[in-house]
Design a protein around this nucleic acid. Structure first.
Lengths: 210, 210
DNA sequence: ATAACAATACCCGACCAGAGGTATTTTCGA
DNA sequence: TCGAAAATACCTCTGGTCGGGTATTGTTAT
């Protein structure tokens, strides 16, 4: 490995995307050390090889890319993490940044955009592609904050509500009092700050909890 | 162009994916004639060049890949269309087939899977990757049929319901009787075959109507 | 022009959800 | 082991939803 080359690891569950990135990147000042379709394999390799940069997808089969980002930063703080994702939701972008990502770009990026992003990140900047910059700077009233923390029981009941089950039906399926389910439902409404089921299901969907 | 080579056109809005496919495919018996990130450009090229095969994404910036598939088949019936998509919803797969696609594969396909698919399609078969085969063969009760036809008013009211507005609120905002809104809501339930709001919002979301 | 569909409106009864409380028992991590 | 959090349960009252009808007026495409 030459000192003047930037060593790169690619993590993406689509081998087509990995091929595309390799063919776009593996050249002059860049060196693709390895590529992985699952988070855990990638984790071991990154800990050993300490690459300069990880190109990371959010949707992985085993662990969330957001968690993997935090792990990488804990193991190898000097390794830069540039997230490449299809998600343009504000809360997902924010979560990656809070977990140490050095940049976030959408996958419909051009070759130039990608190379610019990589050099920006390697120069120590936090870098976004244009669309993402716009999303971060204008938090609209329809954008989401952090998803609320839900207990196991609440998640379970949320799913049953989403399946169209009534309070009574849920209660008898879980062998508890309907009054208990009503309490859980009220707590869900408070946590999501909504006032009825329709809104509840909408925001739970936006938070990808269903 | 040699007679023994299969000429291919790639249509995908992600240049990374295009690069990946090119590097995986452009070799021995295959020849990538061209690649496009928008449907209309691709359309003109395909009409002129009559490739043997089009690798087609469903999500395009200008037209739906489903519509483009029908167009291609109308212009050049001998050209095979192999859809490469991230969607695994039954109704989307079915729509592409009804519009003439010769195969459907998920983008997390391996190189071998991709080459197998291409040769199967070129041999005249209708080909699916394994996951898709499973989805087609077992239509579960959670799978979607065709989305129901909704009138303007119904779409409008559906959106207002999804925003958490009650029947009374909707009625006064639209200056009609609450009883009218109740009728519309009941019609929505019948069209979607659901029995309450929670289910309504869920299936409307699955149909991407919200 | 006429049939089909959309939008409007009404009735009734049964049931469910929502908002506000309070309180007990269980579970689980520090 | 002890305290916090989770899960359970109850109360009241108001309002909303849901299911089954029927019926009148517009619209619109054939």
């Amino acid at each position: 490995m030459y000192l003047d080359k930037t060593s790169i690891v690619i993590v993406d569950d689509h081998s087509i995307v990995i091929e595309g990135l390799k063919s776009l990147l593996d050249g002059d000042p860049l060196d693709v050390l390895g590529h992985f379709t699952s988070g855990n394999e990638a984790c071991d390799f990154i800990e050993r090889e300490r690459p300069d940069l990880v190109l990371l997808d959010i949707n992985l089969p085993d662990v969330s890319g957001i968690d993997l980002c935090r792990k990488i930063k804990a193991m190898a703080p000097e390794t830069k993490v540039l997230v490449l994702s299809n998600h343009n939701e504000r809360n997902i972008i924010m979560q990656t940044l809070q977990n140490g990502a050095n940049g976030y770009m959408l996958k419909n990026i051009s070759k130039q955009g990608l190379l610019q992003g990589i050099s920006a990140v390697m120069a120590g900047e936090i870098h976004f592609c244009n669309e993402i910059g716009g999303i971060i700077s204008k938090p609209t009233k329809y954008e989401l904050g952090d998803p609320p923390y839900l207990t196991k029981r609440e998640k379970q009941i949320l799913r049953m509500v989403a399946d169209g089950e009534t309070t009574q039906e849920i209660a008898s399926r879980l062998n508890v009092s309907p009054l208990t389910i009503e309490t859980h439902r009220r707590n869900l409404h408070h946590k999501f700050q909504v006032k009825n089921v329709a809104e509840l299901i909408m925001v739970a969907n936006k938070h990808q909890l269903l």
